[in-house]
Design a protein around this nucleic acid. Sequence first.
DNA 1: TATGAATGAGGATTCATTCAT
DNA 2: AATGAATGAATCCTCATTCAT
Lengths: 194, 194, 194, 194
Amino acid sequence: MPQASADLASRLLDSALSLFAERTYEGTQMPAVAHHAQVGVGSIYRYYASKEILGNAAFRHAKGGLLAGLTAATAQPTTSSREEFAQIWQGFTRFAGAHPAAFAFLEHQQHDTFLDTESRALAAEIDTFAADFIERGQRAGEIREGDAPVLVALALGAFGGLLKSIRPQLVTDLSPQALAGAESAVWDLLHRKT
Amino acid sequence: MPQASADLASRLLDSALSLFAERTYEGTQMPAVAHHAQVGVGSIYRYYASKEILGNAAFRHAKGGLLAGLTAATAQPTTSSREEFAQIWQGFTRFAGAHPAAFAFLEHQQHDTFLDTESRALAAEIDTFAADFIERGQRAGEIREGDAPVLVALALGAFGGLLKSIRPQLVTDLSPQALAGAESAVWDLLHRKT
Amino acid sequence: MPQASADLASRLLDSALSLFAERTYEGTQMPAVAHHAQVGVGSIYRYYASKEILGNAAFRHAKGGLLAGLTAATAQPTTSSREEFAQIWQGFTRFAGAHPAAFAFLEHQQHDTFLDTESRALAAEIDTFAADFIERGQRAGEIREGDAPVLVALALGAFGGLLKSIRPQLVTDLSPQALAGAESAVWDLLHRKT
Amino acid sequence: MPQASADLASRLLDSALSLFAERTYEGTQMPAVAHHAQVGVGSIYRYYASKEILGNAAFRHAKGGLLAGLTAATAQPTTSSREEFAQIWQGFTRFAGAHPAAFAFLEHQQHDTFLDTESRALAAEIDTFAADFIERGQRAGEIREGDAPVLVALALGAFGGLLKSIRPQLVTDLSPQALAGAESAVWDLLHRKT
DNA sequence: TATGAATGAGGATTCATTCAT
DNA sequence: AATGAATGAATCCTCATTCAT
């Protein structure tokens, strides 16, 4: 069973993620992670040398997964910011639907206590990705004027608020209409009115 | 110093709030709160019987302050949802400017581990307040159709995202233009296009 | 009010005694003593420099009171050990009835953690008093042979057992018959059968 | 050492018992128990969830052991109360000799602060056991008239007094004569004179 | 003289981490 | 490789004692 250990590592990551999402990084005990993953405590340490390292791995797993989802969603060329926005929206939506714990964990405001430099750098990538989209849209005259990071913060904040409000349900539980309505509301947040 | 002891309780609340905002409720130690408030650890317990009680007091202080700020800001009668929105926006902005730690603490996603029923009830009041505003605007045809709680979540999320993005600076450090831009962006999120 | 402070000192002693009796020396907090005596905590320290000193004072007050009661009860000359035993029994009975908390406190087995030398010496006096009575009775052929301290331990133990069993009622709640029966049982424990 | 972990629980119980006997439940610190049992503090909590639970376990271990000893000692049928009393006396004597700390702990007057309902129930069993013996003897005309609980209290009190007086020596240090003398003294406390 | 708010050392308990099996 | 019992530093909380009023 050559992939046994790889499996265990990722099972641990999933367990950590769902417990962190539910009870906070600080509020989650290593024995609880072990129990959730159905392994002995000691086994965690074979894959993650410390709780801090596990926390960072979980964060990077989540953030990296989101970034990959967004990249994949925006792979098809588009002809307008609105279309690209739709792709991004779908990227977020799918990721949040497929990995609710990961998304919830990323939404926590306080990772500062344990994130290392590499994790912080990864976190910044999402912002850069979003800011690029905003700036492109502004140059094309489709997105309103203003500081790109500010617009990113508003839009991501709105999406996060939406997800937080329906917790612990899944995004996929929202009616298509409600979701479509939210999408156009957030687009209007960004859209340049003529 | 006749106000000494009444003050101590609120000095402790402030200290707790700023440390909780910075490092999470779980990540803050009682001795750290005592140190920040420049008192002995034991003194905390004269005013707050446990960390959990202190946490709830801090939460209620913050949430109650925000609610009071919003109520005050919307006291003047208005003739349109846009105007009322401006009042609310100012209420949020002022509160976040005046009590950045309190606002940051409220933005944390994970209070579930320690909030008691009373605190949760207070938290719901803000949502009700906002949902009322939304529904009134919808009836007046000024605010877009859709589930009121969903719109509330989007708008509050956007505002929260904004504040989070500039941390640890103050809202008041944003240029008036940036702030005004953000305000109209969020309004457009809510506004019914004709 | 010249006796005010003497009063306070003894009120504190009484409070201490009844709390110690109820909850143990170790289980009683200084603030609880203050509260029971209706004074501020600080005031205790004007009369008793520390909890340990208060504990010893309470112990000596109780033990000394019992010794005084026994001495008074046996003041009248008697012509037999049985008569003297009756006096002693009455001495114990009256003291336990009049000062139930003091008696209960003395019955606790563990004073070793705080008693000082002087208190221990006083404690020994009761034993000496009782051993004297036993030895006199043995010389007169009225009390059975055997180690005097052993007989003392048995008799005092029996009396203590009696009191413990009816706690928290008072000795005076026992029917005169029951009390008389207990008295003759304990006398038979000591009495030399012919 | 296959019995290691089952042993740890009982080693902890023994350590707790001897420290509680010596210094009171309240006067004994968990680290002291750990030290005495030669384990880390944390290990106590794997077996006993709190000090209170440890205290109750220790009490029940002691009381249960005594009850078992008495039951075993009285297993042989007897033809008189005097004989049965001899069995009971031997039961007490052996238990106190074999488990001096357990016996001393049981003699403490103040368990009220931490005993739970189950422990109290067990404590009552000894009294019932003794009261049964008394009542049987009374019906047979061998034991004096009087309230059975009162006679039990007197007899147990006497035995307790005896043990207390020789502490910290062992019962087994008493000369056989002294012990036999004490036994007949206590029997005379109970015996119905003709 | 009396008070009780303030203090901080000390005690109970938790939990990340180790290591013998 | 996996386990989970054992560890003890770190955390919450208590309470004897002090001292400004």
